[in-house]
Amino acid sequence: MRQTQTPAARRRRELTYAVYLVPSGALFVAVILVPFVMNIGISLTTWDGIGSPRWAGAGNYTKLLADGDFWASFGHNVALVVAMAIVPAAIGLVLAAALFDVIGRRFGPRTASVLRACVYLPQVLPFAVAGIVWAWILAPDDGALNETLRAVGLGSLREDWLGNPKLALYTVMGVMVWVQIGFPLVVFMAGLQRIDPALHEAAEIDGASWWRRFWYITIPQIRPELYVVLLICTVAAIKSFDKVYILTGGGPGNATRVPAFYSWQNFFEKTQVGYGAAIATVLTLITVVLTVVFLRRQARAEEANR
């Protein structure tokens, strides 16, 4: 039917649908597009947020490239990508396969879903709350972790977990793994249900071990989910302002500062708004590139499946 429509009719039909885009189109322009463009504009100026901005060209960006503090914060963010994307995805894969293959099949799906829920719980918590819990457990004097170490006779291992500049980043990484593993687990378990059980059965008859089947069947089959998880978790790691604000405030010194936190400091503490805007623009560029690369890969994979 649709093929017989004239171009004019088609245009009219599209217009009657396009009307539905108007309300959120307007909202989108006001809340996202205009501020985004303004931020790029601000990043090309020197501005304290009060007077009038002075044109600085690419000055903020050249400053950024030479700023050791920025690169240090960038390095901390790479560490958080490891803790929030790579480690949770790896653990999540093994856990999902174990829950699905072993627990779900031999101890019933109820057991599997209860265990999954326990691991997922930190994901529904506001990080502000999870952060308070952990800061309290990791407190230097009478925190639960140090008290436990003392109780089991390992008192010499007690540490100021979040206050020691050499340790703080690793401590934050550990907390992030706890927060994050539930997400890959849930996504991977959903993905495993797609896999044709005949593949596993055939391999089993051929005498393939569980690990070989995991490596040669499960992982390749679940690749789309793996990409989604890695993208979403990496983007989440880039947005770790709240984690740093609550656990360490970027400290001790600058030991756990990440670019998101650094840009906030420039905006609201140092009132170097232009420089803060430049950091934010660079961060956005990174997430946009990651997202586009991901969408490309996804589109190509879908094409290949067709």
């Binding site: 985004f36 601000i42 947020g49 840009s263 906030w264 803060g276 623009t281 997202t291």
Partner: peptide, 17 residues
């Protein structure tokens, strides 16, 4: 999708202003 994934740091100061 890009609007949703971009860091909010890039919107915060203009929105504040």
């Amino acid at each position: 999708l890009l609007a949703n994934t971009m860091p909010q740091e890039v919107l915060v100061y203009p929105l504040y202003f």
